Amino acid sequence: MANILTPEDEKIKESINNLQKELPYYIRLYVLYKESNETSFKTIQQYLYRYKIFFNWLIVPQEEGKPETAIIQVPDIKEITLEHLENLKLSEVNLFIASLKEENINKESKNKKRTYKLVKNRNIKSIAVMISALKSLFVFLSKKSEDEETGETFISRNVMDKVDIPIKRETSQNRAEKISSVIIPGNEMEGFIQFIETEYIKTLELKQSITTFNRDYRRDIALISLLLSTGIRVGEAASLLIRGINFKRQTITINRKGNKEDTIPVIDSAMDHLREYLKIRDEKYKNAAECEFVFVSLYKGEARPLSRRSMENIVKKYTEAYFDGSGISPHKLRHSFAVDFVKNGGDITVLRDLLGHTDTTITSLYLNMANDDKIQMLRKMEENRFRALEEEQEENM
């Protein structure tokens, strides 16, 4: 099945093209390499943003008013050469990482009187992504590139080899506890769907909101039911095509991360909700028949693919109403599916395939979230200890 870009992906691709124009020429070659390896457009875009931050930092004077203190003394980042990167020192890279950690990224902190209250630093995950992005670039330049004249790689020295990616120290159990506090338990999933269908409208007051709900609720139920019954990512749902649904085999074909095509099974109820939505899709959304994407919205009176952001807002809207103000993200629906799958005896390797993971390292996290036996066993141990104590006391009486 040919991969068709969503409007969002088209915008991201346009952003990539614009960013390349601001960066040195070899970045274009890096992008071609990543695209040939089917790296997602979103990842490439995020990496280019980070290269722009890094390159701009390299040409900014480290001491105010002293241009000669810049790491690389050129007037524009497009003039940063391969030789410049090859000669970067580890101390300079570490200085950049330190600056990231110390920088106040809160835009509101410009108010000097309140700066002390508004300081916001990058978290460890953000720092890790920056280092990963730079490592990816330097691996390409030092190992995967080739000069057409000499046949050699673009650079021979990779300073990023000496830099470690920071890891947030946290046990899998602790991480599992955090996630499990914001998921929908399996025994509430059907109740949540029924709430949207029969109760949510009662929370609305404006006539326009009620009209919009009556138009969209079958679509919204089909989307949420699909997320809860398959664990697919919101981006995978956004790019789902009409021809990717096979009602006879009860499967959907989606594009995973890295544009990998995958076909996964869907339970009866979710397929029924999809079927009900598709029955009214062309009637409720003008010219929807001309759109190949399953989930659509109305934009200026015409059907267009439902964006990832809109899907996130839909899930948040209904979960806020259902949980009395505590909205959750579509990714938490993915967690909800995974935990329910394990609790019902699902195999961890099967779950890995259903979620589109490459190994069970991440998937095994759900074992901790689904395993209630730990608490039960500890309670049983406590009961046995008290029972043993009571028996001992009775014998001594």
Rank of each mutant, 00 (worst) to 15 (best):
K113M: 13
D164P: 03
M397W: 12
E35T: 06
E108A: 09
I242S: 13
R304T: 15
E146K: 07
E68P: 05
I97S: 03
D272M: 14
M160S: 06
E149C: 00
D147F: 06
I193Y: 11
I375R: 13
L90D: 14
L240R: 02
Y299E: 11
N396V: 15
L223P: 15
I179Y: 04
F96D: 01
G151T: 00
T263A: 06
N111V: 14
Y47T: 06
T198D: 14
M130T: 02
F41Q: 10
M397T: 12
E149H: 00
I53D: 15
D353T: 14
L95V: 05
K34Y: 05
I131D: 01
Y322S: 06
L19V: 11
A70C: 04
D164N: 15
T363V: 06
P185C: 05
T150I: 03
V119R: 08
N344F: 00
F55W: 02
K168T: 12
D359N: 15
K89D: 15
V159G: 11
S180W: 08
I252G: 01
S297L: 04
L278A: 08
R218S: 03
D76Y: 07
K178D: 13
M271E: 10
S99H: 09
E86F: 11
I267Y: 11
F341W: 03
N104D: 15
L48I: 07
G327R: 06
S145N: 08
Y116R: 12
H357T: 08
N56Q: 14
F140H: 08
M189P: 07
R309T: 12
T69C: 08
